[in-house]
């Protein structure tokens, strides 16, 4: 997948080395090159070229590549748990229905529709989450933690913060400095929303856990995982519900949704604009781009993760921190749930 000469990886064929050819010094090509003054091991090009220092390893040996024959995004790994994660939300609702919980499912769906009304677009396509990585000025990226904090504050202090779910989601500039903060907000956050989240959460878990008879998950783990998911929900509930509900909305609901979406959007834009302005103002004062050391960057990007658990509602959860393990276990459970023959029988 990567043009990565130094890594020397090759998947080109069964015998990419073709050493028979490479080691044969009797060949025409070898002979001509040697006769023109080339010595094995040296590179071609003008003798004493002034720009020789700029030569890369590819001037010595051909570039190795990894083959890519899928649509996996950059950095996504094939065969990881993420693929399984995809679509499970929808599966959960089906499971629920088949289990005779129609009432519940229906209610849940209605609720979700309401949430969905916020943003027709998110509803339809799922929301893309982004985190800011700074500003491109010239051909350098300038970034600074300072600015990001300012932005965050700005967004939060928007008067419409009760409605701020969308703002939060949309706000790419938003960066949480710590998980605690998130938790705090959760506790103080609006109750109904929390409950709702729990509900849909429960549904999922039911599918995953209850039917599948998962005995192993210890309580503390579950709690952790719950919390984590809550967090995710908190920051992207609309998108999450989207993933859960793939059925089309009624026209009425749509119209409503779109109306609200527009309203929402205006607010959102205002917030964003303000934030952007703020950010632009503060960006020149941030540190030198080159001094944005690896570590600093890492910390910022890590801190941004809780806001956005998954990049898209369709899955691909990659969590670079300790949460990863927990998450993986959770997913494994889900996987088991859907694969366990017993669970299917019960369905």
């Amino acid at each position: 997948m990567g043009l990565a000469a130094p890594k020397n990886r090759s998947k080109i064929s069964n015998d990419p080395q073709n050493t028979t050819w490479a080691n044969n010094t009797e060949r025409f090509g070898h002979r001509i090159l040697t006769s023109q003054g080339w010595t094995p091991g040296s590179s071609l090009g003008a003798t004493d070229a002034a720009h020789k220092a700029h030569y890369t390893a590819a001037s010595h040996s051909h570039i190795r590549v990894l083959l890519k024959d899928d649509n996996l995004g950059l950095g996504a790994k094939r065969g990881s748990e993420r693929a399984e994660n995809f679509g499970l939300a929808g599966f959960a609702s089906i499971l629920g229905r088949l289990n005779g919980k129609e009432e519940e499912v229906k209610k849940e769906q209605e609720r979700q529709e309401k949430i969905a009304q916020r943003a027709y677009v998110y509803q339809k396509f799922g929301m893309m989450n982004f985190v800011s990585g700074g500003f491109l000025v010239g051909d350098k990226i300038e970034k600074g933690v300072k600015r990001e904090i300012e932005v965050k504050v700005e967004v939060k202090s928007e008067p419409e913060s009760s409605d701020s779910e969308a703002v939060e989601k949309k706000s790419k500039k938003r960066k949480r400095s710590s998980e605690d903060e998130v938790k705090l907000e959760e506790q103080s956050g609006d109750e109904p929303e929390l409950k709702r989240k729990k509900k849909s959460m429960n549904l999922r878990e039911e599918a995953a856990k209850e039917d599948a008879a998962l005995k192993s998950s210890s309580k503390s783990k579950k709690e952790k995982k719950d919390k984590k998911d809550k967090k995710d929900k908190k920051s992207k509930s609309a998108s999450d519900t989207l993933a859960t509900d793939s059925e089309p909305l009624s026209d009425k609901a749509r119209r409503k949704a779109e109306k609200r979406a527009r309203k929402e959007e205006k607010k959102l834009k205002k917030a964003l604009k303000k934030a952007a302005k703020e950010a632009a103002k503060s960006s020149p004062t941030t540190e030198d781009p080159s001094s944005g050391s690896e570590e600093e960057v890492e910390s910022t990007s890590a801190s941004s993760v809780p806001t956005s658990g998954t990049a898209t509602p369709s899955g691909l959860t990659y969590n670079p921190r300790g949460m990863h393990a927990v998450r993986q276990r959770y997913i494994r459970q889900k996987k088991m749930a859907s694969m366990d023959p017993q669970a299917l029988k019960e369905v």
């Binding site: 996996l72 995004g73 950095g75 989450n129 982004f130 658990g309 990049a311 369709s314 691909l316 959860t317």
Partner: peptide
């Protein structure tokens, strides 16, 4: 200046993700 945004996690399907982003 151009503000750069990254996704918080890798994408499962870059084509699909790009369409969604555009919309």
């Amino acid at each position: 200046p151009v503000e750069i945004f990254y996704t918080p996690a890798p994408e499962r399907d870059y084509v699909e993700a790009s369409l969604r982003t555009v919309l």
